[in-house]
Amino acid sequence: MDKKDFENKLKNKKIDECVSILRKELIEILTKKIQEKDKYFRYSTTKDLHNKAKICLKQQYSEIASRLYNFDIMYELDEYKLDEMLEMYKILSKE
C-alpha cells in the first residue's frame, strides 16, 4: 500500500477511495496468511476468502475476513467501513 497516497486521499476526504485501497490491502495480507497454510490458495472473492480463513486462520483474522465479506454484501456507510478497516489493518499489521 502506498501510505503517502493513502494519507493524501484521507486528507482530501476521498473516503470511498481510501476504503477501496484498504479493502485491497486487507485482502492481500489475509491471502498471504492463508497461503502460509495452504500454498495452493489464491484469492478470488471475499466470500471465498472468508470461507477459507475459517479453516486456516486464527479467529481474530477469520473475523476480519468475515467483516470484509459482510461489507461487500450489506450496505454500510463509507465512513464506518473506513473506521472499521483501519482497526482491522492495525490488528493485521501488528505481526
Binding site: H50, N51, A53, E63, A65, R67
Partner: peptide, 16 residues
C-alpha cells in the same frame, strides 16, 4: 449485532 454475526460466522467451520 453485525459484529456479533461476523464473530460467529468466523467460528463455525462446517456451514457458514
Amino acid at each position: 449485532i453485525k459484529q456479533y454475526y461476523a464473530e460467529e460466522q468466523s467460528k463455525i467451520q462446517d456451514n457458514p
